[in-house]
Amino acid sequence: MLRLEGVSHSYDDRAVLRGVTLDLAERRIGVIGANGSGKSTLARTLNGLVLPDEGRVSLGEWDTRRHARHIRRRVGFVFSDAANQIIMPTVVEDVEIGLRSLRLGRAETERRVNEILTRHGLADHRDHPGHLLSGGQKQLLALASVLVTEPEVLVCDEPTTLLDLRNTRMVHRTLDGLDQQVVLFTHDLDLLADFDRVLVMHEGRVAFDGAPTDAIGFYTKLLDEDTDPGGRAS
């Protein structure tokens, strides 16, 4: 289970996380909040991309500060801009490269790659250059390349921000069908309807923690009260 204990972080003098303490146990957890609420930084603390100034982030006995490699193998991360996450020239190479460090052997690597490409409808694009895929397919490839390593938890940082409605639904369906725990950071409130738990981030703190409908209600009220739209991109 992912656990955050008194996590605080700032960039230069700007505090973006102020003492966040959380146990993330539910299978489907959503995190919402305005730009600059600390959402994106919180997401990055979960797999050690950001090591917080204060506090501790852990998965079971592992700790992001000391066991970054172990944590990253168990906590997969999907970014909003898939293009930057696709690293290799072709689809199949990109899925393969994540497996390289696991040293599974050629047969097992090939089996896993083929299975994941088929499951996400990318088998026909196997040898195509990743950049020629559509926006939705790119995000599916980014997901497939992370899922092929079979992480326990999948953290998604606004995975549908750059997608149109059809592709957003496709990514939604894919996330829905996963066996893994999913922590979804999003602006897309529609995605969260059947989630187990939704957190609302506000000014670096968890301002609300509860069921999706209550959280969304709280969030919209928060936005209405907040007449000053001074949110800045994190």
């Binding site: 930057n84 690293i87 994540g98």
Partner: peptide
Amino acid sequence: EATGEALVARGI
């Protein structure tokens, strides 16, 4: 910058 972050996140 984003690609570097992805390289780390993906354990590559």
